[in-house]
């Protein structure tokens, strides 16, 4: 299945999808040293996002979250690409400075956790196997 959205930051990669219906606050909600979601009551609480294609509705919380995304990108923790319904400034800036492929305006309900995803963020294209 091929889904088309909008490029936030370019790059091609592939990996396993990790999908949540909850929005994500990277500052305080994800541990930058491990890539594990730590927000209390979050659908992904305790789940490691490292090397996953993280699929979620939108970002929220403090703008320091951009630096958390950057820190994970530089240390090899956290997701290798992001797919969102609606990207906002915190996630967009984090992806640009961390150079993580990112696409939004995707119907994320079409993707399930564990499925293989190929992403060409520059073209805004997401292929789900």
């Amino acid at each position: 299945m091929k889904l088309t959205g909008r490029r936030i930051y370019q790059g091609k990669t592939e990996g396993e999808a990790l999908v949540t219906k909850d929005s994500i606050s990277f500052y305080g909600g994800v541990d930058p040293e491990t890539g594990i979601v730590v927000e209390k009551g979050h659908e992904l609480e305790g789940v490691d996002t490292t090397d996953k294609i993280l699929v979620f509705p939108t970002g929220k919380g403090s703008t320091v979250g951009s630096y958390v995304i950057y820190q994970m990108a530089k240390t090899g923790k956290g997701p290798k690409a992001l797919i969102l319904q609606e990207c906002e400034a915190i996630v967009a800036v984090g992806c640009i400075i961390g150079e993580i492929p990112c696409v939004d305006q995707i119907d994320t309900s079409q993707i399930t956790t564990g499925s293989k995803v190929i992403i060409d963020a520059g073209a805004g294209v997401v292929e789900v196997e």
Binding site: I8, Y9, C87, A89, A92
Partner: peptide
Amino acid sequence: QKAMEILVTLGDIY
């Protein structure tokens, strides 16, 4: 250049 990339992306999003 990096600064413009950030600003243009934000401008496009909003």
